[in-house]
Design a binder for these strands. Structure first.
Lengths: 134, 134
DNA sequence: GAGTTAAGATTACATTTGTAATCTTAACTG
DNA sequence: CAGTTAAGATTACAAATGTAATCTTAACTC
């Protein structure tokens, strides 16, 4: 499958969060620009035409499908989010860290990008792994 | 700083591995296409002109510098590898996992992408972290 | 010193990407 | 049913990217 660009990914993300969805649903979701505090955030505004172009490209790339619904289409992801994020993660780890995950984690640790919760989550993942690989 | 493209990254990688280096040094390194078994691998061949274009672009992007040495240049990285890989890692984790590292690791675990060594390395990182954050 | 060459500089060109505007036409409306 | 409209289809266009070829000229060679 062809690569998905950054802008395409954002559209796909909106679709993963809520599908099937019409183009307008997706545009609306992308433009929901109030943050957690309810304050208008200065996030980029997505233009109607832009999003539709990206939807078209995603269809061509077979990342999403659509079915006709009266006058408009309802789109759905074909690509699973988890599969996609894993593929991208593996690709980055392969390119930057010779395929090893630890150096990536080490980078985060070194720059104080980890907090107690992150560490707990990692410990829990490790203990699960050990349960399944004794 | 502007983004570094994939092809540019590969050139930069060669430079990180050995610098300062002339364009020819870099081209040679990129084309070292024998793998660990000594068998000729079918890796892509980098064309002289292509690499030089990429070096130029990296200079424009201020990712590398050069100094004149007789007839040719000696290039050196300006960008630190560790800083760059951390930035890219954080960017991916932000985009795909809401900034949380654990889900990325979980993806690897789920797909059996982790072995005993990886787990040991992670445990060691965690214990270091805990030593510094009690 | 004149000629040759090889490095880097400049130019090229197709594809992809971001970002839309315009075109067509099926579907709604009165 | 005719007119209007809004969805999607098609076209547009600049910047970035991958991949080189051609141009210039300083540096080597005889």
């Amino acid at each position: 499958m062809t690569e998905i660009s950054n802008a395409e990914f954002e559209v796909l993300e909106a679709l993963w969060q809520n599908h099937p969805a019409s183009a307008n649903d997706i545009i609306t979701k992308l433009n929901e620009n109030t943050n957690a505090t309810g304050i208008e955030s200065q996030d980029k505004q997505w233009h109607d035409k832009t999003v539709k172009t990206l939807l078209n490209r995603l269809v061509k790339k077979q990342a999403i499908s659509f079915e006709k619904q009266q006058r408009h289409y309802l789109y759905s992801p074909l690509l699973e989010r988890e599969a996609y994020t894993l593929k991208e993660s593996k690709s980055l780890v392969a390119r930057m860290f010779s395929g090893k995950l630890a150096p990536l984690v080490a980078g985060f640790a070194k720059q104080n990008e980890l907090n107690k919760d992150d560490i707990s989550a990692l410990k829990s993942l490790i203990s699960d792994w050990e349960k399944n690989n004794d």
